[in-house]
Simulated assay, not measured.
Amino acid sequence: MVRRGRRAGRPRLVVHVLKPDVPTLDSSKVGFVVSKAVGNSVVRHRVYRRLRHVVRLVLAEMPPGTLVVVRALAPAAEASSSELAADFTSALRKVLR
């Protein structure tokens, strides 16, 4: 999925999106990649929870069958929820045009 779709990078994260020509799923699906480069377990889970909340607000507006992978980068550890939201919406807007 990551190799075939489109990608947009921001300072704190990278968003990969695959929009199939014929939707095989009724809803969109999202996956998260938060590696050890982001921080220890506590920091990684905090980033994951913030990203999950940000994506939940936008998920219903995505075209049906869209597959999304959000990969957090090391600077995401110090980012606030609003900074992560701004990066995500900006990257998603670029990929979906």
Rank of each mutant, 00 (worst) to 15 (best):
V58S: 14
L59N: 06
L59W: 08
A60L: 15
A60T: 15
E61P: 01
E61D: 12
E61Q: 11
M62T: 15
P63Y: 03
P64V: 02
P64S: 06
P64I: 01
G65F: 03
G65V: 02
G65M: 05
T66P: 04
L67W: 05
L67K: 04
L67F: 07
V68K: 02
V68N: 00
V68T: 02
V68P: 00
V68I: 03
V69A: 02
V69F: 06
V69G: 02
V69K: 05
V69T: 07
V70S: 07
R71W: 10
A74M: 12
P75R: 08
A76M: 11
A76H: 10
A76Q: 09
A77D: 09
A77G: 10
A77P: 09
E78S: 15
E78W: 11
E78P: 08
S80Q: 06
S81H: 10
S82E: 05
S82C: 02
E83F: 08
E83H: 08
E83A: 10
L84Q: 00
L84N: 07
L84V: 00
L84S: 02
L84I: 02
A85G: 03
A85N: 05
A85R: 01
A86R: 13
D87C: 14
D87E: 14
S90P: 07
A91V: 02
L92S: 00
R93V: 02
R93I: 02
K94M: 05
K94F: 01
K94Q: 05
